[in-house]
Design a protein around this nucleic acid. Structure first.
Lengths: 106, 106
DNA sequence: ACCGTTCATCGTCTATCGCCGATGAACGAT
DNA sequence: ATCGTTCATCGGCGATAGACGATGAACGGT
């Protein structure tokens, strides 16, 4: 990873924080679980599941997509959302880095 | 704000989200790194490190403590904050559960 | 006793989040 | 062409987060 030498750390932690922010809402956790269980979902399915307004769900999904945790694929008028397990594992890895952090070794 | 421990199911995703929320801020990530590298820090040390007001740092530390990610120990007028690696590993585990999640949703 | 240091907490301000209803685009079916 | 469905986006609202300065308590040193 090439970063600006001066402040690779600040940048890094912002990126990490952004991912965690996407996970920092109960509704989004639930949505992730549901997506994971269903393999793939339209927005509608999620709406039916969660007793939230369609716009709200759409927002949450957007946030998850922008965080890179969920992949989006437009399928006619139906949207297809699916968990990006690799990305999720990546976040887990970030956390592990933090746990084991020696932070000086790279 | 604090719910009874009997409410384990709905609490689940809320509890998880709460922990991630504590991690969802770049300053707190940096603070965690610093704590981890320094093994143990006073509030002052962190303040010096991060160009944030003392009150702000104190708040962030409090949030981390309340999330259970950092342990606090009062030492005379100096505070001692240290990363709770086990707790951090626990969060990592939660994430892994989410990654592997297939069954236990809801 | 008097400072200087460290720290948590309070009050305030602003920006952002989370929620909703409404709207309009895209599409399939009739 | 006209519906009905699905969806993303906008605007607005109340609530919360994040930042700060000020304050007062606790403690060590002189």
């Amino acid at each position: 990873m090439i970063e600006s030498s001066s402040d690779s750390r600040a940048c890094d932690s912002r990126a990490i924080a952004a991912r965690f922010a996407a996970l920092a809402h109960p509704a989004r956790i639930e949505i992730l679980k549901h997506l994971s269980a269903s393999r793939c979902c339209s927005c509608r399915e999620v709406v039916d599941q969660f007793d939230l307004a369609q716009s709200t769900v759409s927002q949450h999904l957007k946030i998850l997509v922008e965080a890179g945790l969920v992949r989006f694929e437009a399928d006619r008028q139906r949207s297809r959302y699916a968990v990006d397990h690799a990305a999720l594992a990546g976040v887990s890895g970030l956390l592990d880095q933090l746990v084991n952090s020696c932070c000086s070794s790279r």
